Simulated assay, not measured.
Amino acid sequence: MSKQDARRARSVAPEHRWPAVVGTVIALAAYALLPSVIPAIARYSVVAVCGLMVVALILYNPHRFTRESKWSRRAEIAVAVLILVANQIAFVETVVRLLNKHGNGSEILLASLQVWVTNAIAFALVFWTMDRGGPVARVTLPRSELPLADFRFPQDEDDDTIDEVARGSSGRMDWVPNYIDYFYFSLANSMAFSATDTMPLTHRAKLLMALEAFAGFVLLALVIARAVSLIG
């Protein structure tokens, strides 16, 4: 092994493909089935385009994220951003329906739940693709060559605590976050409306988390207001 190969060797295993795929499929299904005035052809087109890109990415990395090219990197980012943008349009529509009391109660509550769940998954996909260069870069590049982190996880600062905790830290175990970690803190941000155990470090991370928290707060507030009006 050359010095360059030795320098690039990492002790962490490449991330599994399937957690991100499952999350993407759930988000696309929720978006496709959303009660919406957005034309079905438009929603199904988004689902079809994202689905085709996901299939191509699965064929490129069937089980683990072991390789990356320019097209695969762009496709990962495109899928995440397209789902996020499409769901923000659905979010605006749902807010308008809640404010104007359009549709029956059960339909609008279902739409709100679908938008909220899709938002948590979509933001997790965006966080996952952008942080530290993406899932492939995080496990293949030396830490000194990784792009600046967008988020700080608890494991990034646990190397000086008690041994059974420190052994799983970034400093001791070469730990890096995977999709499950991003989904967890995306879900927590949607429910708590603020950072919990994972801290945003860059402006883009802070703005994205602020947008997600704002959307979650607005949906919850309007759903509660709608429920109170129905009771009254």
Rank of each mutant, 00 (worst) to 15 (best):
M1N: 12
Q4N: 07
H16Y: 11
W18A: 13
V25S: 12
I26D: 06
A30G: 12
P35N: 08
V37T: 12
V49H: 00
G51Q: 14
L52T: 09
R64W: 11
R64S: 10
R67I: 00
R67F: 10
R73T: 13
R73S: 11
V85K: 00
N87S: 07
I89M: 03
A90V: 06
T94K: 03
T94A: 08
L98D: 08
L98P: 03
S106R: 08
E107L: 07
I108T: 05
S112W: 03
V115H: 01
W116G: 12
N119T: 14
F127Q: 03
F127S: 03
F127V: 01
D131W: 05
A137P: 09
V139C: 05
T140M: 08
R143L: 04
E145L: 05
D158L: 15
T161V: 15
T161Y: 14
S169E: 04
G171I: 01
D174R: 04
D174M: 01
V176T: 14
N178H: 13
N178T: 14
F185W: 01
S190I: 03
S190N: 08
A192Q: 06
D197Q: 14
R204E: 14
L207Y: 11
M209N: 09
L211Y: 00
A213I: 01
A213L: 03
A215Q: 12
F217C: 04
A227Q: 09
L230G: 03
L230Y: 10
